[in-house]
Computed example of a mutant assay.
Amino acid sequence: MLTQLGIFLRKLRLDHGEIMKEMAKKLDVSSSFLSAVENGKKKMPDSWYEIIVNLYSLDQEQQDKLKKSIEESQKSIEINLNDLNSKKRNLVFSFARELDNLNEEEVDKMNLFLKKDGE
């Protein structure tokens, strides 16, 4: 099943008249790896964002759509806690533990507090 990122990449390819093999070559990966990224079986390498922006000369709107599709397609995130003091670390862990317990209203309030679009 295609992820939001997969949909974005496929549309980008088609808009540029490319097949998967051509995009994979530009990204220096195999077609099967690119397919696995599109289908959510593999994580997109972090380096791809800048590469895709530059290869396809994405405007700001397209860059925003790419970022959002990456976020929506992620199954997990990694947070580096090395530079956080114990208070901030505890906040991160508390948030992660309680995330499943938040209702939609609480999520909306958190997004408003963090000034980030929820959906």
Rank of each mutant, 00 (worst) to 15 (best):
K43C: 01
P45V: 07
R89T: 10
K21P: 05
M110D: 01
L114R: 08
Q62R: 07
D28Q: 15
F113K: 10
N111C: 13
W48D: 05
K65A: 08
A96H: 03
E71P: 02
Q63G: 02
L99V: 12
I19V: 15
D64A: 14
G17W: 00
F93P: 00
S76M: 07
K26Q: 15
D28M: 13
L14E: 11
D64P: 09
I52V: 15
N111Y: 02
N82M: 11
E98L: 10
L27K: 00
S86E: 13
N39W: 00
W48M: 07
P45S: 01
N85Y: 09
E72F: 06
D100A: 13
F93M: 11
S57D: 15
G6L: 09
H16T: 06
S94A: 11
L12S: 06
Y56G: 06
E38W: 09
L27W: 04
E105V: 12
L81P: 01
N82E: 08
D59R: 02
A24M: 05
R13C: 11
L81N: 05
E50C: 09
M1P: 08
L55T: 10
M20Q: 15
L112Q: 14
N54P: 08
K42S: 10
K67E: 14
G17Q: 02
N54A: 15
I70E: 03
A96L: 05
A24D: 07
M44R: 04
G6Y: 08
E78P: 00
I7D: 11
S69H: 04
L27P: 11
E71W: 02
K11R: 13
V92Y: 00
G17V: 06
S94Q: 09
D46L: 11
K88W: 02
S30N: 04
K11S: 12
L5Q: 01
Q60I: 15
L66Y: 05
A36Y: 09
W48N: 07
L81S: 05
R13M: 15
Q63T: 13
K115S: 13
K67F: 12
L5V: 06
L112S: 14
E104Y: 09
E22H: 04
K42G: 00
D100F: 05
A96V: 12
F33V: 03
K116A: 11
G40L: 01
Q62W: 00
N54S: 15
I70M: 06
K87R: 01
L99P: 07
S69C: 09
E78S: 04
I52A: 03
E18K: 12
I51H: 10
S47P: 07
L102W: 02
L66S: 02
L2N: 12
I79K: 02
V92S: 01
K67N: 14
Y56P: 12
P45D: 04
K68D: 10
L81H: 05
K75S: 07
L66K: 04
L5F: 06
D108G: 03
K68T: 12
